[in-house]
Nucleic acid binder design. Structure first.
Lengths: 140, 140
DNA sequence: GCTTGACCTCAAGTTGACTTGAATTCGCAG
DNA sequence: CTGCGAATTCAAGTCAACTTGAGGTCAAGC
């Protein structure tokens, strides 16, 4: 059957009950009903929790995630806002790739000062270019 | 000339002076010296701040970033630790791409319930697969 | 030579995201 | 029924990452 109580949701998602209640307070998730006092969750909740965790990893705040997911399962945001978020995400992804490259570079490059190494310099030039746009979304 | 005082660093990096002082306390950056009481920064500081901001965006804590950057500009971590971090970053990047795809999907897909839409379902199956590994690094 | 504005220190406050604890209350196993 | 483990509420606590404020210093321009 498909009805889960809070402990099962916690076990399957890895998110503790206290956090699930907190998320409910914040409007991120909602039980499908109650049995007595006990919250009963549908299986879509697990999916939502996955999306919430991805959103957090992307640096969105809980209120932002709540908007993107919408109370009902459909976003609260207009299409172009969603695309704008996706665009932000694209920039974010590029920055992380750059960081990844940089990390691998410093792990492997034998040059004792990276400031001398041309491939490090190239990474840093790119980093500087992407740096300009940091925090744009957060500040709107 | 290449010596900056805290206000100039703040202006060029967008990081407020209070935060620069806080970062110094946390061992993330250091002035090249003082003129009287005033901190004097070299231009490498701007680069470090770029890397710090990328590290934060990737979800690393300030102490983790401090290790990766090292006090001297060279990482405090062994090569394989750095590669492990880069690998984590790769997983993180994949999750963000998935979120990006999902966002664009819900922005554009006309199906009134995404649960019905096969391409949404496909995204969610992938999401579930990546979900398992969440927070691995954080928990070590 | 004195004012002014940018800087300083240090302690305390704030915010977001949770967690913890105390005091109940269910609901199912025996 | 009875007991007990899993849930519940609500207030308070915690932690990381900063910010703010009070009170002081300093050097550069008028």
């Amino acid at each position: 059957m498909k009805i889960l109580d809070i402990g099962e949701v916690a076990a399957q998602s890895g998110v503790p009950p206290s956090t699930l209640r907190y998320y409910e307070e914040q409007g991120l998730i909602a039980p499908i009903g109650r049995k007595g006092l006990r919250r009963q969750y549908g299986p879509q909740t697990l999916l939502r929790l996955t999306l919430i965790s991805m959103g957090k990893a992307a640096g969105f705040s809980l209120p932002e995630i709540a908007q993107m997911l919408g109370a009902d399962g459909h976003p609260d945001l207009p299409r172009d806002e969603l695309h704008a978020r996706a665009d932000d995400l694209g920039r974010q992804i590029r920055r992380l790739q750059l960081l990844q490259d940089t990390l691998r570079h410093v792990a492997d490059c034998p040059a004792s000062s990276h400031l001398d190494c041309p491939s490090f310099q190239k990474l840093m030039r790119q980093a500087e270019r992407t740096a300009a746009r940091v925090g744009k979304r957060a500040s709107r």
